[in-house]
Design a protein around this nucleic acid. Structure first.
Length: 253
DNA sequence: ATGGCCGCTTCGAGCGGA
């Protein structure tokens, strides 16, 4: 089973890239973030024609998450329970006995800002909910744009990013708290080359110079981590015309 | 020194992203 995550930065713009990528990779499940569209314009028909069911939790302009799956999905769930949030950042569904949770974690804007506080609260709420969700679904995968680079080796220039947003100690601690539920970073289950990233700034030739961060992740419970055979970041779509600033991450279970 | 890109909203400057 191939499961993947991709922040597409507008699904309207990136639909052709996603359809091409699905045809090439034959992923079984693809989690999308930043669809930036309302549900009434979501391209269900185009996806179905390509062989994928879809569930979507969207809103106009900002945020928006979706799960695409070759198999039908059950027990679809939107948002974090008992956490008041107008931003559409979470969708979950069960696919072939695997609980898939797709998340678009808050960016946080700047350390110490209101959005930063929201980000930390959001992570705490996610962790509380997932503790229960994992108890009910031992085979669970959390995929998405985490907006946190877990360690300095996930940052092209750790000195420049030290204590900055996406890299601050409190953010990394929040991610460790989440992983303390037993969630393993699929990418780090394997030997990986150095300087592998999943996001590069559009500005200043960020991609060509490989000035990136690894902020898109696939986290697996022990029952799934033991089944995981590979996890890679596919840079190919980042080289296309009008790319997303993120590259997809894909794991094989 | 600052911002330098992209997408969105809805025509165009400002916001958000990371």
């Amino acid at each position: 089973m191939k499961i993947a995550t991709w922040n597409v930065n507008s699904f309207k713009v990136r639909l052709p890239h996603v359809l091409d990528w699905l045809a090439t990779t034959q992923a079984d499940v693809l989690c999308l973030q930043e669809t930036k569209m309302e549900d009434k314009v979501f391209p269900y028909a185009e996806l179905l024609a390509a062989g994928y069911h879809a569930v979507h939790n969207g809103q106009k302009t900002y945020n928006g998450v979706a799960i695409l799956s070759r198999s039908e999905m059950t027990d679809v769930h939107l948002d974090i329970p008992d956490f008041a949030d107008t931003q559409k950042r979470v969708i979950a569904a069960t696919v072939d006995g695997v609980r898939i949770v797709c998340g678009y974690m808050p960016n946080g804007q700047a350390v110490g800002s209101e959005k930063y506080a929201y980000k930390l609260q959001w992570y705490a709420a996610l962790t509380r909910w997932l503790q229960q969700e994992i108890a009910q679904h031992p085979r669970l995968a959390l995929l998405g744009d985490f907006n946190i680079a877990p360690e300095d080796r996930d940052v092209h220039d750790p000195a420049a990013w030290k204590d900055q947003i996406l890299c601050s100690e409190a953010e990394r601690a929040a991610l460790r708290q989440l992983q303390a539920l037993g969630l393993a970073d699929a990418f780090r289950l394997f030997d990986q080359p150095e300087k592998i990233f999943s996001w590069w700034d559009y500005r200043q030739m960020g991609f060509r110079l490989n000035r990136g961060l690894r902020i898109d992740h696939i986290l697996l419970t022990p029952a799934l981590a033991s089944l995981c055979r590979t996890c890679v970041i596919d840079k190919a779509p980042r080289k296309l015309e009008r790319p997303s600033d993120h590259a997809p991450v894909i794991a094989e279970l």
